[in-house]
């Protein structure tokens, strides 16, 4: 219910980035998105360690996509690296988001992963907008709204002398 007749949005649920509900929701969304990737990564680490052989195999089957030969070449020539980077990357991205540290940097890698999954899974039977694209958009939202500043470590890190001396680090934090 609004308490200001002139502005129906100006109540306790107003979407203001400094508002309590916005902070609560952005932090919640960040932690859940982080858990999603952390779970995917850490279970791969438990089962296969740094030798996740499905990673390069998945990339090698990505023929005829909008990414051209890039994923196939990655799968063929960087297999050893991808076997390690997929579980490790997913785990670190998830961890970063959950604790709210280096959220923007972690989310850039999250977008990269989700772009590959979106194109590679190609589950377009009900259109291009599917859960993979929604996951990609979630990471974009983390970057745009700097969600690490809401109950995240980035809020503390950004107050350090190092970040004050190099304010551009906020483009990787936040």
């Amino acid at each position: 219910m609004s308490y200001q007749a002139a502005n129906p949005l100006a109540d306790e649920f107003e979407l203001e980035l400094g508002g309590a509900w916005t902070a609560y929701w952005l932090a919640f969304l960040r932690v859940v998105t982080g858990w999603w990737f952390f779970h995917a990564g850490v279970t791969k680490l438990i089962e296969d360690g740094l030798a996740y052989t499905y990673g390069p195999a998945y990339l090698r089957q990505m023929t005829g996509t909008a990414l051209g030969p890039i994923p196939v070449l990655m799968g063929e020539h960087l297999g050893w690296l991808i076997q390690a980077l997929v579980p490790l990357g997913e785990t670190l991205i998830g961890l970063g988001l959950m604790v709210g540290a280096l959220v923007r940097l972690a989310s850039v890698f999250g977008v990269f992963f989700m772009a590959l999954f979106w194109i590679g899974n190609a589950e377009f039977g009900h259109g291009l907008v599917n859960s993979d694209l929604m996951g990609l958009l979630l990471f974009m939202t983390m970057i745009v709204l700097a969600t690490g500043r809401y109950y995240g470590l980035d809020a503390i890190i950004e107050k350090t002398k190092l970040v004050k001396r190099h304010p551009k680090l906020r483009y990787l934090l936040g």
Partner: peptide
């Protein structure tokens, strides 16, 4: 062709990535 459609979305993401790099 879905390749064209996904390619357009990737191009949009690339623009945002370049913008981010520029801001940096």
């Amino acid at each position: 062709d879905p390749t064209l459609r996904t390619g357009l979305v990737l191009a949009g993401l690339l623009v945002l990535a370049l913008y981010g790099a520029y801001r940096l």
